[in-house]
Design a protein around this nucleic acid. Structure first.
Lengths: 204, 204
DNA sequence: ATCAAAAATATACGAAAGTATAATTGCCGT
DNA sequence: ACGGCAATTATACTTTCGTATATTTTTGAT
């Protein structure tokens, strides 16, 4: 489950960081702790599944503000907020913006561990989905411009003859390109190709 | 936007109900207010877009408990919680379970109105999606058992010959059934049929 | 049991798809 | 200008698909 993964902790309170490091070490999960969001960004992220335990209130950038900026920074880690001084709207908004948990200190250790396990699972799943989308996009990119043209019209259901007219090429050229599309996209049948392009459109 | 829709209010405090009725009447939205969840269930729901403003703490069944039971009752209304005595975990859990807002009294009128408009829009969208899925399911149901068999294998990419062998019928029968499938499903091309069955699988 | 409707099958034909071989065109670098 | 090299096109053939017509089988109702 937690083969190789990291939990990032950002909290200005060193005693909290130490406590979390101990807690997660006790269950064999690697921890990288920082006292500011800047320190976290400077260190960078490892390319392994993980999640982020984030303090709400900190000197410098708050955890709330950092959370809002994460998408723009290309950081998609699941976020678990911890706080000693939160209020209801803050917690509600955090969850509405995608945080997976919002815990108030003092919190139950097991509750946090459960949230972390959940976050790591979500990140693993996100990475799987992302990898599939990337692989699919790579296949598509291996098609020449003309082959992509043909592929688009094929999955629209046009006949080879119609595609040829649309693209101002001969029907035999369409057949050649079409065969190349099927080979390069590793599609055994036309329905396969349709499904591949549907996934491609969704993950665009 | 709010052509014909209803906001259901469940709150044991008659002054709150009156205030909400006034507020929503001022913007021309119809209100149905109840003092208990039982009263709401007894009255039943209208078949128009709407959302539910739900008090957290009430005599009898609490709003929180009712929210958890809604899916089992087949009620998919967007829920907006209002409360005077909530805490952070309660608000966080409510949102995690799908509530679209969790407001603490006293709340800003406009905040509630925005949430309600958002809830109504979501319900409209849900109804659109549901109607599409239902229409698609109706088309599929219009296929005979044999036609459904053929359709399933067609979208898997099997040849008519292979389908015939699989179903122990003649190839000509497959052709007839296949033509019926295309006609009944209103699919002009094979890619169309593939996409229809994909949607069907997702909304099953 | 019998009749009528529906489903399945047989036969036949034209259009489309897939593939192979060969010829042609267009483009790029030397 | 020239020689490759990839893309396009032409030709030919086989398989598959779609459809129409006619026949047989099955099903269901009275």
């Amino acid at each position: 489950m937690t083969d190789d993964c990291v939990v990032y902790v950002i909290d200005d309170d060193s005693s909290v960081r130490a406590a979390l490091e101990d807690l997660l070490a006790s269950v064999g999960i690697r921890v990288l702790a920082f006292d500011t969001t800047t320190a976290f960004l400077t260190h960078g992220m490892e390319d392994v599944p993980g999640c982020l335990v984030l303090d709400v209130r900190m000197p410098g950038q708050s955890g709330i503000d950092f959370h809002r900026s994460m998408a723009g920074l290309g950081i998609n880690l699941p976020v678990i907020f911890i706080t000693g001084h939160g209020d209801i709207p803050m917690g509600v908004d955090a969850i509405k913006h995608g945080a997976i948990e919002f815990l108030t200190k003092p919190f139950n250790d097991q509750t946090l561990l459960d949230a972390i396990q959940n976050g790591i699972s979500m990140d693993q799943e996100r990475r799987r989905t992302k990898a599939e989308g990337l692989a699919l996009h790579t296949l598509w990119s291996s098609l020449s411009a003309g082959e992509q043209d043909v592929a688009r019209l094929v999955v629209r259901g046009l006949l080879n003859k119609q595609i040829a007219a649309e693209l101002n090429v001969s029907e035999i050229t369409v057949k050649i390109r079409r065969a190349q599309v099927m080979r390069k996209m590793d599609a055994q049948t036309l329905p396969d190709l349709v499904r591949l392009t549907e996934k491609l459109a969704l993950s665009s």
